[in-house]
Design a protein around this nucleic acid. Structure first.
Lengths: 153, 153
DNA sequence: CGTGAAAGACTTTGATC
DNA sequence: GATCAAAGTCTTTCACG
């Protein structure tokens, strides 16, 4: 797909904040009729600009009030070890995000749990069973001051 | 709102993975008719279980391929300082997430940018202008190994 | 709480400019 | 590319079990 024009960018800005806006509402915001907006959205989906549509839930109300960040360093760094680690992490349902980092720490994990006991069990029964972990540091979120899934452009 | 029953939980699991599923599709997955599913979804929205619906974009395609995590510690920790920091951070459009942490680091910031030059400018012109920052450590994401906005329950 | 049907709204297509 | 209108599909409401 060629470059996005100003209308495409506006559509993306709207939908990444509120994907329940109807084609009709978006077209009114842009002073267009529904059809071109409809076509552009389909094109943005097909070409991967829009990856997916999701509902964001309240973590407290679904009983996952605890968020922890684990910083992990591996003992050995051969490619095989990294891939194995990746596979093992993906199998852990508590892990919401896992990033391979540049720097003195190899991985950041973001974990969601119901309470601190669960975190203790998670580290004791799951994380610590993964071989090849050298250093493991845990941080807990006291307060989510700001959080969005949108990009600024 | 009282507790969620098994049907509510199933609806939430479906919508947090794909909010474009129609009421009709969800009702078929649950072997119900559309109306009760429609009503339950509205109730989950009204009671805050579903916070919002968003489109997730491809960060590379919208020219924000660089993700950095900044760990920040403040020099002074009075409440006034923390609130002021919070206000200043929220004004920075590059910051996608900001968490107040427990432990030896006060804040985690997640930053999205177009390239490393932009990161350099961001730190030089914006972050470093915020008073009261004691320690600032930057980490860069090499690879997003896994990432979801869904909770596992 | 669920079903089923009716009315209304939005999506989606296709002809036209 | 955009507009307009027609057809189709879902959403949304409501009477009823």
């Amino acid at each position: 797909m060629e470059r996005l024009d100003a209308i495409d960018l506006k559509i993306l800005r709207i939908l990444q904040k509120d994907s329940k806006k109807t084609t009709k509402e978006v077209s009114e915001l842009l002073n267009l009729s529904a059809s071109p907006v409809y076509e552009r959205i389909r094109r943005l989906e097909k070409n991967g600009y829009i990856r997916k549509y999701v509902a964001l839930l309240d973590k407290r109300l679904v009983n996952k009030p605890i968020t922890a960040v684990c910083m992990v360093s591996l003992r050995y760094h051969n490619e095989g070890f990294i891939e194995k680690f990746e596979r093992q992490i993906k199998a852990l349902k508590e892990v919401q995000e896992c990033y391979h980092m540049a720097g003195k720490v190899d991985f950041f994990l973001k974990i969601n749990l119901g309470d601190l006991d669960e975190y203790h069990e998670f580290v004791r029964l799951k994380l610590s069973k993964i071989e090849n972990i050298g250093v493991l540091e845990s941080y807990f979120v006291l307060k989510e001051m700001y959080s969005t899934t949108a990009y600024y452009f």
